[in-house]
Simulated assay, not measured.
Amino acid sequence: MTPVISFGEALVDMLSSRLGESDPTATETFTPYAGGAPANVAVACARLGVPSRFLGMLGEDHFGDFLARELTSHGVDTSGVVRTRQARTALAFVSRDASGERTFDFYRPPAADLLYRLEHLPTGVFAEPAIVHFCTNSLTEPAIAETTLAMAEMARRAGCLVSVDANLRHNLWASGQADITLVTRLLDAAWLLKLSSDELGYLSADHPADAWLAERLAAGVKAIVITDGPGEVRLLGASLERRVTPPTVQAVDTTAGGDAFIGGLLAELSAYLGSAGIHGDWHRDADFLSRAVDTACRCGAHAVTRPGAYVALPTHEDLARLKG
């Protein structure tokens, strides 16, 4: 199998005990769960048996210790994780509505993950073929954005397959909105791109969505998947378009749904590339991509039926038990 390397933030999701507006007079408590989108993807891949590595920075604090333990316990290689006393590990306070859809209040910046620089990269990290995964939350400040874009370029030049999940969190940006130009630079560095229908609407702005997607494919993106919550997933390539319907489940917490989805997709791609090679025709194999997206949908469906992130991510045994 081709290894997966995820870069970006690992943080602690403080999950509220309240669900929607039910019993607003009850005492509200928060339970810590290990999270952070790129870290979730690293765990998702590891739980599906893929060699998985996480690159990032944690504070030398209680929450950093917690995240390091959790990553390791799920089988993620943490040899590329750096610790610092210059900032604390990021926190996200998570509220859920009655359908399990969540909103985030971030305690970031400052945060340790924003201090990662190219000099922190392990020697030879991209020396062997790998899938290298990014999210856009490591673009929210100039220095970490420069690091992220440079790392994506390094990975591409080394012959790695770059994957990007837009995963926009507007309240992490100083302006209150993601920088479309900067985000698009990272998206166009990808061979595999995942975004939601809401993100597509925001990023395409006043352009027709299909024209904007065609621009991404023209820029070098090989395959694009567009999710829509529990709705159909759209799969696009230069010469293909498919739609896949996810299983119907009762959502409890959607925190890791998208991360489970892309983790499942990367796990399928990892297995495929193990025999075909990084530069194979995976993006032209419509049947493979359809099957891979179906697996990704099942991973996302499983994750939203459980609270938290790492602990909600499925194994192959979990997927075998999932109906639909």
Rank of each mutant, 00 (worst) to 15 (best):
F7H: 11
L11Y: 12
M14Y: 05
S17N: 10
S17A: 12
R18Q: 15
E21F: 12
A26V: 08
E28V: 15
G35F: 11
G35R: 09
G36N: 08
G36I: 10
G36M: 07
G36T: 07
N40M: 08
N40I: 05
N40T: 05
N40F: 07
A42G: 01
L48S: 04
F54L: 03
G59R: 02
H62Y: 07
H62V: 12
L67Q: 04
G75F: 06
G75W: 02
V81Q: 06
T84P: 05
R85M: 00
R88S: 13
R96I: 02
F104W: 08
F106H: 07
Y107C: 05
R108M: 00
P110C: 01
L114T: 00
E119Q: 14
G124L: 06
F126I: 09
E128T: 15
I131E: 03
C135M: 13
T136E: 06
N137G: 07
N137E: 09
L139T: 12
E141D: 12
P142N: 08
P142H: 12
A145T: 09
L149D: 13
A150F: 10
A152V: 07
M154K: 14
G159Y: 11
G159E: 09
V164N: 09
V164I: 06
N167P: 10
L168T: 06
W173T: 01
W173A: 02
A174W: 01
A174S: 13
D179Y: 01
I180G: 01
V183I: 12
V183S: 11
R185C: 03
L186A: 06
L186M: 08
D188W: 02
W191R: 15
D198P: 01
E199G: 04
L200C: 03
L203S: 01
S204C: 15
D206P: 01
A209G: 07
A209W: 05
D210S: 14
A211K: 11
A218H: 12
A218N: 13
A219F: 09
V221D: 07
V225C: 15
V225I: 15
T227I: 11
P230R: 08
E232L: 13
V233L: 14
L236I: 14
L240C: 10
L240H: 14
P247D: 02
V249Q: 00
Q250K: 14
V252R: 14
T254P: 07
A256T: 08
G258K: 09
I262M: 15
L265V: 04
A267L: 10
E268N: 01
S270G: 06
L273I: 07
G274M: 11
G274N: 06
A276I: 02
W282Q: 07
H283T: 04
A286Y: 03
A286V: 08
L289E: 03
A292V: 07
V293N: 11
H302L: 14
V304M: 09
T305D: 06
P307Q: 13
H316N: 10
H316E: 15
A320Y: 01
A320T: 09
